[in-house]
Design a protein around this nucleic acid. Structure first.
Length: 300
DNA sequence: GACCCGTGGCA
DNA sequence: TTGCCAAGGGT
């Protein structure tokens, strides 16, 4: 039995019940789930995904609202640039693809916020095509089971895709199932910390396990700080703007962080990224992108 | 390839 | 308590 076979067998008995896996889920719904799942845990994505799909069932629905609404709906999922790109993606789908999600890999890749992983995930899970789909889970599982390494090193896209391609069954539907099975395995059994090897279908064949499951050696990747970074300051500023019902005076932003230089840099970054817009030329009021106050009809 | 981009939960 | 980590993408 191949690795893919045993992974699929395990998946059939142990897969989580996730709403975007329900047969018949639209490609748009799959795409939204994939973008939300970029660096955000399933447990936090699930309610947000339901709310999002309920409000914007199709790309056209989202494209009709301003980016600010997408940023607000994004809530505290983190990396709000993803919300903005998902909105831009909806606009692109309307403009270039008649409001539908394309099934072509290159067309998917050309969409805002859609990279190597997400394009392949949509083509595979929404359209049943045969592509290697490699995320952090797959890289870890393959790294351990096949290469015998405790952890995958830095992502090397081409090599990762090649490695996974060799494990895929020929039949597309079964290849897709193998990919989701590897991902699920990495998510709930072959975890980064304290893997549950006794529950793993690869227990008897895993190269890492067979070599005694050595701990990772040498320096791992450098830790990601958060406290005190620009990211924290950006988060605090955006938090204020998300809850605002109108233009926010600079004074209300000034109070979220004491360091003038860092605060100004963070705000400028948000503007550069297109998440925030200065409302006036002297930049003393701010809004979320596209969130302009009503104007006097006489001026229109 | 290195670095930047949020947020929260858990060991 | 705090470091680690979570279905990446863009520059």
């Amino acid at each position: 039995m191949t690795l893919a076979d045993s992974a699929i067998q395990w998946y059939d008995r142990n897969a989580r019940d996730l709403p975007w896996r329900v047969p018949g889920t639209s490609a748009w719904a799959v795409l939204v789930s994939e973008v939300m799942l970029q660096q955000t845990p399933v447990i936090r994505v699930e309610p947000a995904w339901h709310a999002w799909m309920n409000r914007w069932p199709t790309p056209a629905d989202l494209a009709q609202d301003p980016p600010s609404e997408a940023i607000r709906m994004w809530g505290r999922l983190g990396y709000p640039r993803r919300a903005m790109r998902l909105h831009a993606c909806a606009v692109a789908l309307v403009e270039r693809h008649d409001g539908r999600v394309p099934d072509d890999l290159d067309q998917l890749l050309a969409l805002p916020g859609v990279g190597t992983y997400t394009a392949r995930a949509v083509a595979t899970f929404a359209y049943g095509q045969r592509h290697p789909v490699v995320d952090t889970n797959v890289r870890r599982v393959v790294s351990r089971a096949v290469a015998g390494d405790p952890d995958a090193g830095p992502a090397t896209t081409a090599a990762d895709l090649t490695a996974m391609a060799e494990l895929l069954p020929e039949e597309p539907a079964r290849a897709a199932r193998a990919s989701i099975a590897f991902m699920e395995l990495g998510a709930i059994v072959c975890t980064a910390r304290s893997p549950r090897c006794t529950e793993c279908p690869f227990e008897q064949v895993c190269a890492w396990r067979l070599s005694g499951a050595p701990a990772p050696s040498g320096p791992t990747r450098r830790p990601q700080r958060y406290a005190g970074t620009d990211r924290q300051v950006r988060g605090l500023i955006l938090e204020v703007l998300r809850h605002a019902t109108g233009p926010v005076p600079r004074q209300r932003i000034d109070v979220v962080w004491a360091d003038d230089v860092q605060r100004a840099r963070a705000l400028a970054g948000l503007v550069t990224d297109g998440l925030v817009e200065p409302l006036d030329s002297d930049a003393d009021r701010f809004v979320l992108a596209g969130d302009h106050p009503p104007r006097y009809p006489a001026l229109e």
